[in-house]
Design a protein around this nucleic acid. Structure first.
Length: 512
RNA sequence: GUUCCAGUGGUGUAGUCCGGUCAAGCAUACUGCCCUUUCAAGGCAGUGAUCCCGGGUUCAAAUCCCGGCUGGAGCACCA
């Protein structure tokens, strides 16, 4: 059979098994995210539950965007839930920063809440588990607990009777110190999945919580809080990054023991860029050692930094959607984000001239005193007038490539015949000069040149090592029109690249 | 160590559940041409993949099964 040609095989099949060649429809190119399991239009509720323990970054954006896109896709609801169950790590400052970041991204929520709003529910459900024998108070030391987990051995606390457990629960409210007792879920100490080996449900923390203060000292663990919250919030589909994959079973088991509704769960790979650390553990020391300025340093993948660098929220959204829902572990290419951003920004970025490494060019017989230059080659963004007097700056890189006796084109102005090369260049204005195959370069009028600092962020780490040259700063000259542009606007410096105006005397390079 | 997850052009992915239209789509990167008095954007074309490896099942395997290799994650009173 295999020796037959493909056509012959097809013919053979056609004759004998016609149904084989018309199988079920296959979706060739999917639009957006894949379909959800057990989802109905209008009934989908998703959520984004960040812990307010740091500044939002591209990883947060991924989780928020995927979940919110699903809600949008099904005409459902989307909930922002601040996962604030560890008073020691969380701060109002971060809470606010996350909200600002999400707003910048343009993500809208139907409900905004805190996990800590539901403390009474956690206690109620916790009691229910204790009363039904599905949870117990454990007084083992941290290390012993960890050891028992590894060795798959139950401790003697797990054999205490109900009265003792209820009594100890009471003592947790007041008497026990942090670390002396925890509530554990009766999972399966023999389970292959280590998170099932009697995980902690509640622990004592005496620190002051940033919103509820010292009202509570028994705090639910992540696993318990997420399970309960997703259930009572009506979450139908919950997506989190894949390091939580083993938690799926636990979430379901907890909810089953309480006869509570379960959400569908999904997982996606973490989003990180090559050479751009995402974790506080790495960023914090960099700030302390002054290797980066702050969490908004343009070399960082935080939302603030991306914004400062000139990346648009819509580019981030498109980029994240393009990554899909894969669980493969990858380092995303920053290139791709830049490409989305470039297309977004191109249409309304004013084109200005800027020269780096300036070289003087004097043009002798210039008869005009000003030129009008178009602000955008295609779109109507108006024109600007530039005064000229024959004294110019051009880029050093361009100057190098020019030879005596050749013509160059000063963009928007005219052709110049170079009469003298050297430290400074000299030339003559040529009416009706050549067009083809001559250098067409940008320039700045010496008299009105405005100096700015150009910041060029580069990759922070090369092979795990801090890149000492990760931030290039150069002084450049640009047209005075730069001063008219609003701060934060994107500019294309012709033949250089897109930059975001950071201030009157500083611009940040976005990308080519 | 152990458990789980993953492995498709340089890069990121689609397709894998339910084998056939996939000698493999898209994006990005790169190259060339067109347009343009920008090295941008836009248009067109092109280079680039033995679908991690080895077996097996089948008329047919990227897709199913078995074994291996490589990478990542979990094994916290963090989330």
């Amino acid at each position: 059979m295999n020796k037959l040609s493909i056509d012959e095989q097809k013919k053979e099949i056609d004759e004998n098994f016609p149904e084989i060649l018309t199988p079920k429809e296959k979706i060739k190119e999917r639009e957006g995210l894949p379909e959800l399991k057990n989802a109905q239009q209008g009934n989908v509720i998703t959520r984004f539950p960040p812990e307010p323990n740091g500044y939002p970054h591209i990883g947060h954006a991924k989780a928020a965007i995927i979940n919110s896109e699903y809600a949008k896709m099904y005409g459902g609801k989307f909930i922002l839930r601040m996962d604030d169950t560890n008073p020691e790590a969380e701060r109002m400052e971060y809470h606010a920063a996350i909200k600002v970041g999400l707003e910048w991204l343009g993500i809208e929520f139907d409900v905004v809440k805190n996990t800590s709003d539901d403390m009474e529910v956690f206690y109620e459900k916790g009691m229910e588990l204790i009363n039904s024998g599905k949870a117990y108070i454990c007084k083992c030391k941290r290390d012993d607990m960890s050891k028992n987990r590894r060795e798959r051995k139950a401790c003697k606390c797990s054999r205490e009777d109900l009265d003792k457990n209820i009594n100890n629960w009471g003592k947790m409210q007041t008497k026990f110190k942090p670390g002396e007792a925890v509530v554990r879920f009766r999972g399966d100490m023999k389970a292959d999945n280590a998170v099932m080996r009697d995980p902690v449900l509640f622990r004592i923390i005496d620190g002051k919580h940033y919103t509820v203060g010292e009202k509570y000292r028994i705090w639910p663990s992540y696993d318990f809080a997420v399970a309960i919250e997703d259930s009572i919030d009506g979450i139908t589909h919950a997506f989190r990054s894949k390091e939580f994959e083993l938690r799926e079973e636990l979430t379901e088991t907890i909810l089953d023991s309480l006869n509570m509704r379960k959400p569908e769960q999904g997982f996606f790979s973490r989003l990180e860029f090559k050479g751009m650390p995402i974790s506080k553990r790495i960023i914090k020391p960099l700030i302390e050692e002054r290797k980066v300025s702050w969490y908004d340093d343009p070399r960082l993948p935080t939302l603030e930094a991306l914004k400062k660098r000139g990346i648009k929220p819509e580019a981030i959204r498109k980029f994240i959607m393009s990554l899909g829902l894969t669980k493969a572990n990858t380092l995303a290419p920053f290139d791709s984000l830049e490409a989305f951003n470039r297309k977004l920004v191109d249409g309304d970025s004013i084109r200005l001239y800027m020269v780096s490494n300036p070289k003087k060019l004097t043009v002798k017989n210039l008869s005009i005193t000003s030129v009008e230059v178009s602000n955008h080659p295609i779109n109507d963004m108006g024109k600007r007038k530039i005064d000229v007097d024959g004294n110019f700056y051009i880029s050093g890189e361009d100057a190098q490539n020019i030879k005596e006796g050749e013509q160059i084109r000063l963009l928007g102005l005219g052709n110049i015949l170079i009469t003298k090369q050297g430290l400074a260049l000299e030339g003559e204005y040529v009416r009706d000069g050549e067009i083809k195959n001559i250098p067409k370069i940008q320039w700045v009028s010496e008299k009105t040149a405005h100096q700015i600092k150009m910041i060029i962020p580069k990759i922070l780490f090369i092979d795990e090592k801090f890149n000492e040259d990760s931030l290039e700063e150069t002084d450049v000259y640009c047209e005075p029109h730069y001063l008219q542009i609003k701060e934060g606007e994107e500019i294309q410096f012709v033949r250089f690249g897109y930059c975001r105006k950071d201030s009157q005397n500083q611009a940040i390079f976005t990308h080519k």
